[in-house]
Nucleic acid binder design. Structure first.
Lengths: 213, 213
DNA sequence: TACCGGCCTCAACCCTTGCTCGAGGGTTGA
DNA sequence: TCAACCCTCGAGCAAGGGTTGAGGCCGGTA
């Protein structure tokens, strides 16, 4: 079961889970000899905890309250989005049905903003574009471009340049093509769900083929 | 101005504000003699920080990024409310699990255990193996096989059968090949790090190519 | 002109959170 | 029987977020 969670959350460890139990966030059953036995529901609960921690930075205390609320059949009180200062752009954010949905409003970055946000030099960006890894839609870039550029920069430190990364682009294109064959060219809930699945598949496949420690 | 803020946030103190300045969250002007002088905009900014901290439990690091984004005229990526049952891979530009390390000891499952753990029928597993998606090492399977099998089962519900998934295997093989070219065939810390990066790249690429909502 | 309160800096210290580690000791399955 | 896990419990630790205090410079006022 650790393995299962680790597929999704790279940094869970046995001791972390034991800690979470000590904090009362999960209470797995025990075998006669005292071993923890995690039901699927326990795993679900852990998944919730880890997600809240990773994606929302919630402290365990708060997560615990939420879980308590859920257990009592309530919706956890999601405190609203940051009340943006009047002088600044308001953030309407909300939805995120499943977390393959990006920010509720798609980012639209100029090239300079993208460079600033990702902290990468002009030339790297040029190369990324020429190899089709980053593409502008009209005259702006989406939020994923930041991630792509950042990661590409880190990979460059290992000697992997954009031209070595073309295969990734191809693979992603094929993957999306496959998804669209199933769900059609419009984005639906299914699209996101399917994408989440294929990405998970990809991740697991890579792991499984990595040299064993 | 302290008084002002204290009306709203009981626990602000001078030292806290000085601390926030040291962290680069506000940068009030100074008088000739070195006293801090807060403009209304500074106060607004502080209000934002304190609210985000109090109501959303965001760490200062993240708040700082948001402010930076606002300064650049963007919207801070507001991650959504807790989603009770589901949970999925990563959201963009955020958390960065920093390792990709598998469990300290790799799971070794028999075929039947694998089937039981993943809850998939015999035939699916056969197919997965014949297409090279799941491979036995000796006479046992690793933990990733569970994830692969589960996901494959879910994808099957969308009409995607193992034979449609061969490309994923190829892509994963290539990806690992590339990693090994850099780090050598033995698993090292770098291997895991690099794998985490490439998987992130892949994810971001897929996202970026998905039809826009 | 002396004083008193307030602000400044900088380094040191502190508490809480969220884990990790290790010793000491059972349990299991090949 | 032995390796490879699992368990508990206590100690330790890094990071985050401030607080405290010493030593000094303003600035209004009595």
């Amino acid at each position: 079961m650790l393995q299962l969670l680790q597929a999704e959350f790279a940094d869970v460890t046995i001791s972390k889970i034991r800690f979470l139990e000590a904090e009362g966030l999960v209470t797995p059953a025990r075998t006669a000899s005292g071993y923890r036995k995690f039901s699927p529901a326990d795993v679900e609960r852990l998944r919730y905890v880890l997600t809240a921690q990773r994606d929302q930075y919630l402290p365990l205390k708060v997560i615990k309250e939420h879980l308590g609320a859920i257990d009592r059949g309530l919706q956890p009180a999601a405190s609203g989005p940051p009340v943006a200062p009047a002088s600044l752009p308001q953030t309407p954010g909300q939805p995120v049905a499943d977390d393959f949905d990006a920010a509720s409003t798609e980012l639209r970055l100029t090239r300079d903003e993208l460079r600033a946000a990702a902290g990468v030099p002009e030339e790297l960006l040029d190369e990324l574009e020429s190899h089709g890894l980053v593409v502008a839609a009209g005259n702006h870039y989406g939020g994923d471009a930041i991630v792509i550029a950042k990661v590409a920069a880190e990979l460059a430190a290992y000697g992997l340049e954009p031209r070595h990364l073309r295969a990734f682009r191809t693979a992603a294109d094929r993957e999306v093509g496959l998804i669209e064959q199933v769900t059609g060219p419009r984005r639906t809930d299914q699209t996101a769900e399917l994408a989440a699945l294929t990405v998970r598949l990809h991740t697991a496949l890579v792991r499984s083929r990595l040299p064993r420690p």
